[in-house]
Design a protein around this nucleic acid. Structure first.
Lengths: 160, 160
DNA sequence: TGCAATTGGTTTCACATGTAACTATAACGC
DNA sequence: GCGTTATAGTTACATGTGAAACCAATTGCA
């Protein structure tokens, strides 16, 4: 209540707190993409990430997908269940290791991919367009740095 | 499977896709803080945000807290329920408008705040310490720009 | 071989979260 | 005043999610 408290307790200014700002920005951006495109394809963000990885690396196992998407294996398992059910991803059993699955996009999967990917890219472009070229460069550099080793050690989940 | 597909379909490189990178970074950072400190206080991120705001602005209503934390009113309502239950936040009824609540930190609330706030700040410092002063400056500037109007229009939730 | 430890993947449980519906109070129009 | 509309906040429902337990196949190793 009294201003003297404020000095003593040194409250955090949320709007200037970097983790908070990153969270807001990330959620805003992800929401924007999810709303516009993935919802109309009945495609969650986790599912989209799985598809994006399988578009580049055919024949991965679920674990490898998990590594490349930075999601945990449970999330991947669930995403795959839906994607296979929807006929967007094919799942075979690895020759010589019956535990492993061998994953890939189906025709239908590629079709969805080819619609969503450009839209995702467009969103990214719009975001970057709000920055000067100089700022874009710095942002890349800064993210590279901050993601360098962290990105491996810990897990990033949820939205994006 | 065939490389020609890759050219045709132009798959997204997730690890270079800005929204994805932001999501990973945000989640990594938030997780770091949540793990280290807020868990041991039995304090969720949403609860912490509410407390941080109430530390700066005594006597807010729940709606005002929601505005300042960029959370929706349901999330705030739930966070407040737990905080009041835990004796960390006091809730009175506004004189002259019985709908409004008048919120503030209790003694116990301040105690938690005064332990968590410095640790949150320490995390932020550690993060920034990985950047050159020049990069820190650009990051601030870039976030300012990207958060400028978006921050109001859309809602950012969850983690931070 | 044969059994313990590991690994790929799924299921279960508890809990967080968003949307929509709902209650209660207040403001507005007449 | 009185009905309509708006606002503060909570509850209900459906869904997403992580941690841990779990099953099945494989590897390591005696």
């Amino acid at each position: 209540m009294s201003p003297h408290q404020h000095l003593d307790h040194a409250p955090l200014e949320l709007e200037n707190f970097l983790p908070y700002r990153l969270s807001i920005l990330s959620n805003t951006v992800s929401q924007g993409i999810a709303n516009d495109y993935q919802q109309r394809h009945d495609l969650s963000v986790t599912e989209w990430r799985v598809m994006a990885v399988l578009a580049r690396f055919e024949g991965l196992s679920a674990r490898e997908v998990a590594e490349r998407t930075a999601m945990d294996k449970v999330a991947v398992s669930r995403a795959l269940a839906r994607l296979v059910e929807a006929g967007r991803v094919s799942r075979d059993t690895h020759d010589g290791d019956k535990r492993r699955s061998v994953l890939g996009l189906t025709e239908a999967g590629w079709k969805v991919h080819d619609e969503v990917a450009p839209l995702a890219r467009a969103h990214e472009r719009e975001l970057l367009a709000r920055l000067e070229p100089e700022e874009q460069m710095w942002l890349q550099r800064i993210l590279d740095k901050l993601l360098r080793d962290r990105g491996n050690r810990e897990r990033g989940t949820g939205n994006g």
